[in-house]
């Protein structure tokens, strides 16, 4: 272990930021598996996987906020839903700019908006933050229902996806198998970007602020902007998922803005765990598989979900990612501090 870190230290700065080659390989393998699954899986399974991968963007955003800032959000359906509505507006004939440009601007714009929100709410922490996000999410939900001319109200908007975008035919995006490949590739790209971010000084500063904000201030930093950057990232990623959602479904409605949806994303993030970046993605997959399996078996899906959530939170707070890590260490015979006994 120490020999390896000494080695990476000697290497140039850029390669220090990149994840280990093995990690990159896993990402490529996941994309490969997605391609195979997309071409060979039965339609029901492909559709389930596609749904879960798109929602995984939301879970990843929620999980990132827990992982880096230690903050719990009950309102992240808002950036996801705004991304989806944004895509619908960008694709509407009335849009002032070309859809190819509009679609690319959505996630950065929502990220920027949340950066500003982050600057304003930087003093709010813990429980109050959770309640604030709940209110924020609810107000977006209410607004989507009220402002019918923009959002179509509770009926939602039907989106006419152009036949070609960026010179590619878009039919495939509206099939489960086509979207699966695109969404998984995008998700892996986001994961890679996050892994790099966490290794930059800004990423480490964000973790340091979560651990001990006072000392960070005594080390010569202002803490407001770094906290807002994490909130912005945690919103831009769901926004990207929202864009994919619209391209895939061709339809948006306030359903994806409810706080129940935010809560589901939180459950996925907790279930998956935040000790690894990919935890929430695993949580999203597990959530959809569980719902599919249990939803057919019993009508008490909600109660089972609630019980699972309580048991996981209380007895295994590191979630699937923690369990997987512990298993990996057991197999390789190393022991790490902090594993639940």
């Amino acid at each position: 272990m120490s020999a390896m870190t000494e080695h990476t230290l000697a290497a140039p700065a850029v390669t220090r930021l990149l994840p280990k080659p093995g990690t990159l390989l896993v990402g490529l393998v996941v994309i490969g598996v997605a391609v195979v699954a997309a071409s060979s899986a039965p339609r029901v399974l492909a559709s389930l996987l596609t749904q879960s991968v798109i929602v995984a963007f939301l879970a990843l955003g929620v999980g990132l906020l827990i992982r880096i800032s230690g903050l719990v959000s009950f309102g992240h359906a808002a950036p996801f839903g705004l991304g989806a509505y944004g895509a619908a507006w960008a694709l509407s004939p009335a849009a002032p700019i070309a859809p190819e440009i509009g679609l690319l601007l959505i996630a950065p714009a929502i990220g920027a908006a949340f950066f500003l929100i982050g600057l304003v709410v930087s003093r709010i922490e813990g429980i109050a933050f959770g309640m604030l996000t709940l209110a924020l999410g609810q107000s977006v939900h209410v607004a989507a229902n009220k402002f019918r001319t923009l959002s179509g109200g509770s009926d939602g908007l039907i989106v006419d996806v152009p036949r070609r975008l960026w010179g590619f035919r878009t039919e495939a995006l509206q099939t489960a198998s086509g979207m699966l490949i695109v969404a998984v590739a995008a998700l892996m790209a986001v994961l890679l970007a996050l892994a790099v971010f966490e290794r930059t000084r800004a990423g480490r500063l964000a973790v340091a602020i979560r651990e001990n904000e006072e000392r960070v201030r005594f080390l010569g930093y202002r803490t407001r902007a770094p906290k807002a950057v994490v909130l912005a990232l945690s919103a831009a990623i769901p926004a990207l998922g929202g864009v994919l959602f619209t391209l895939y479904q061709g339809f948006v409605s306030p359903e994806i803005l409810t706080w129940g949806f935010s809560g589901q994303a939180l459950i996925m993030a907790i279930l998956g765990g935040s000790v690894a970046l990919w935890g929430p993605i695993a949580g999203a997959l597990a959530f959809f598989v569980l719902r599919e399996e249990l939803g057919g078996l019993t009508s008490h899906w909600l109660a089972i979900l609630g019980t699972t959530l309580i048991v996981v939170t209380v007895t295994w707070p590191t979630g699937l990612a923690g369990a997987f890590g512990a298993l990996g260490r057991r197999l390789t015979g190393t022991v790490a501090k902090g594993d639940p006994a």
Partner: peptide, 28 residues
């Protein structure tokens, strides 16, 4: 102008190198 803390005030989850590097950057 710098200070230390009586009740240890460090960053448990960061490596010692990473936190000292942050401190160096913060101090210029």
């Amino acid at each position: 102008v710098s200070r230390s803390f009586q009740r240890t005030s460090i960053f448990p989850a960061l490596t010692i190198r990473d936190q000292l590097d942050l401190a160096a950057h913060g101090a210029g």
